[in-house]
């Protein structure tokens, strides 16, 4: 079980990172970030259950709520960008000369 959960967590994190790096649509990048958070949560929960550590489970609960707030802020920022007349493509945002 140990190897299966670690492998799942690592693969999910890698796929989320790939989504952030390879996709150009802002919503797809946000979905990739959510995938990476879910992968980190999975690793934390597995470790907490393996070592019977309730504090790690509490940390995961806090991380879940913070990630939900982060998603709300990210989605509202994307909506703001859309309302300003620009598309979903992250390459269109050039104000910071990035």
């Amino acid at each position: 079980m140990n190897a299966a959960v670690w492998a799942t967590s690592g693969a999910l994190f890698a796929l989320g990172l790939a989504a952030v790096v390879l996709r150009r649509q802002m919503l797809a990048m946000l979905l990739g970030v959510e995938l990476m958070v879910a992968a980190a949560d999975l690793a934390l929960v597995h470790g907490a259950c393996r070592f019977s550590d309730p504090e790690a489970l509490a940390a995961v609960a806090v991380v879940l709520a913070v990630a939900a707030a982060e998603a709300v802020v990210g989605l509202s920022l994307i909506l703001k960008v859309l309302r300003s007349g620009r598309g979903l493509d992250a390459g269109d945002l050039t104000e910071l000369r990035g």
């Binding site: 079980m1 959510e34 949560d41 929960v45 597995h46 259950c49 489970l57 879940l64």
Partner: peptide, 15 residues
């Protein structure tokens, strides 16, 4: 399945 049912329910509700 790993023994954290409360977090599983929180994951379903929040995410």
């Amino acid at each position: 399945l790993r023994g954290a049912p409360l977090l599983g329910l929180l994951q379903v509700m929040i995410y």
